[in-house]
């Protein structure tokens, strides 16, 4: 088992009710999992917790034997530099860096930069000719492909994706999703994908539904 989420409860400061309540799930190596749910069901929050971006008050998350609750901020940052990588709905590229720099950035930060692999990724994502451009000069589909490339250049054990096609039209979204699933399969990474689209969820190995803060 790669990821184990056990009875996690998360309440945002100032909120009356917990956004996640006693949530448990698990994910095997190379497994792809889709998490669906309504807006505000807490699915993005769960993804952020798994991505070590935020803390939780009860329960435990374990990734490849590493317990999240044992980690301080530096430890969580270290996790983000190595084991997990994220792809966001907003792409969230670093605007100051070129496409090539963005692609390499996360891997270099995690000390796992492999120029050949990065070049291969760029090739497969159709970004080879765009290396010297800046993110704002790209289309949405191109930007998301850079984000996927940036995440996979690190060779993460777990790829987290939050509505990766939410900002793209259907055709572009499908193309991007195809690419992502292909690459995930090739690298052997596990994928934890949050979406509200049944159609996309259906393309993954397994699916879970989050409602009222609990997994159904």
């Amino acid at each position: 088992m790669l990821l184990d989420v056990r009875s996690v409860t998360k309440t945002y400061p100032g909120a009356e009710r917990p956004v996640l309540k006693d949530v448990s799930l698990s994910l095997d190596r190379s497994e792809t999992l889709a998490l669906t749910g309504e807006s505000g069901s807490g699915k993005s929050t769960l993804l952020h917790l798994v991505g070590a971006l935020d803390g939780f008050e009860a329960g435990e998350i374990t990734l490849d034997g590493t317990s999240y609750s044992q980690l301080d901020e530096a430890g969580r940052a270290g996790l983000r530099r190595g084991a997990v990588a994220l792809v966001f709905q907003q792409f969230n590229l670093i605007p100051a860096l070129t496409v090539a720099q963005n692609l390499a950035f996360h891997a270099r930060l995690g000390g796992a930069y492999d120029p050949d692999w990065t070049a291969t990724l760029a090739q497969r994502l159709g970004l080879a000719d765009l290396g010297s451009r800046y993110p704002e000069q790209l289309s949405g589909g191109q930007q998301q492909r850079v984000a996927i490339g940036r995440a996979l250049a690190l060779r993460p054990r777990l790829l987290l994706a939050d509505e990766p096609t939410g900002n793209l039209d259907e055709a572009t979204g499908d193309a991007v999703l195809d690419l992502m699933l292909d690459l995930v399969r090739d690298t052997g990474a596990a994928l934890f994908l949050v979406t509200h689209s049944e159609r996309i969820a259906a393309r993954l190995d397994r699916r879970l539904h989050l409602g009222s803060g609990q997994v159904a």
């Binding site: 983000r80 670093i94 930060l109």
Partner: peptide, 16 residues
């Protein structure tokens, strides 16, 4: 914030 948040998400601490 939009400029530093991705860097943070990619593994830099807030102190850094």
């Amino acid at each position: 914030l939009p400029q530093v948040a991705p860097a943070w998400a990619l593994g830099l601490t807030r102190a850094q």
